[in-house]
């Protein structure tokens, strides 16, 4: 009886949120799935059903495959760069919570995440500029060889990774900090009494205890990595003074297919593939962590 009443309250309370979710998330996602099986040019009134032919065409599409490869490299690159450094940074900031500068550390790492993307990307574009940018100026000063950052096939991908990591780091640090602050202090006290060093308790206490948080942050970072678009777009924008090599990424290819090539169904098929990849990766990551936890 009591259980039933609580169940009813839970459902009633959750209903508005769920309704909004259904309206602005689930329904459009289902729409996308549906569109991927149709041929639609955005303009005409009829959308003929074409089965899986969009998908079949995609796997012979050179630009799509390039985009897929680039996106995967960027997403994993950002994750590998961001997660370990965010954890260490959060640990250090947490350790120095009482420092007079703790506020500065936290703010300075987090600000890149909250500033608008267009100006931030423009700033980086200038930094990477082969002829005018401070990065090459620094390299030359140190006696190195200036690089054409935005034009080299490998370096241009690296530039996107750096820009994305710069933005993603603050978010990861923030979530890790919440995690650190929620860790039971008693365990650390005990470890300290047992003579464990700071590094030891980080390695053997924090890292395992933070596993659920690490999982979440990794998934989120990976997903936003697969979502990369504006960063690549701005770094290669058609600005005449210095356009860069276009690092073709999935979302860019998708938007190009829907708004330049008017192939909404085809773009939706791309979106579905993006979705499948992200789902598989998330599943794998969950499984991996569960297995480790179980051991």
């Amino acid at each position: 009886m009591l259980r039933r009443r609580r169940w009813r309250f839970a459902v009633m309370a959750l209903l508005p949120t769920f309704a909004i979710f259904a309206w602005v998330r689930l329904y459009p996602i289902v729409q996308t799935l549906n569109l991927s099986l149709h041929d639609w040019n955005l303009l005409s009134k009829n959308k003929p059903f074409v089965g899986l032919s969009n998908f079949i065409e995609l796997f012979g599409d050179r630009l799509f495959l390039t985009a897929l490869g680039n996106t995967a490299i960027i997403a994993f690159g950002v994750m590998l760069l961001t997660i370990p450094s965010a954890m260490v940074l959060a640990g250090l900031i947490h350790y120095r919570t009482r420092s007079r500068f703790a506020g500065f550390y936290e703010t300075s790492v987090f600000i890149p995440h909250v500033v608008s993307l267009v100006p931030a990307a423009m700033a980086w574009k200038w930094i990477f500029d082969a002829k005018l940018g401070p990065l090459n100026a620094l390299i030359t000063r140190l006696g190195g060889e200036p690089q054409s950052w935005l034009f080299d096939p490998y370096l241009s991908v690296l530039c996107v990774i750096i820009l994305c990591s710069w933005q993603a780091l603050g978010y990861a640090v923030l979530i890790f900090l919440v995690g650190f602050r929620n860790l039971p202090t008693s365990v650390y006290e005990a470890a300290r009494l047992d003579g464990a060093s700071g590094i030891q308790s980080f390695r053997f206490l924090s890292v395992p205890l933070l596993k659920p948080i690490t999982l979440y942050v990794s998934v989120v970072t990976l997903i936003s990595g697969f979502n990369v678009y504006a960063q690549a777009f701005v770094l290669a924008s058609d600005a005449q003074g210095a356009p860069g090599r276009l690092v073709r990424v999935l979302v860019l290819d998708m938007l190009e297919n829907s708004f330049r090539n008017y192939r909404v169904g085809y773009a939706a098929a791309e979106a579905v593939i993006l979705l499948v990849i992200v789902l598989v990766l998330t599943g794998a990551q969950f499984a991996l962590l569960r297995e480790r936890n179980g051991r």
């Binding site: 997903i223 773009a267 979705l275 992200v278 789902l279």
Partner: peptide, 10 residues
């Protein structure tokens, strides 16, 4: 998990 761009158009 689903990127916003995936369902932006619908």
């Amino acid at each position: 998990i689903v990127p916003f761009e995936v369902y932006m158009i619908p």
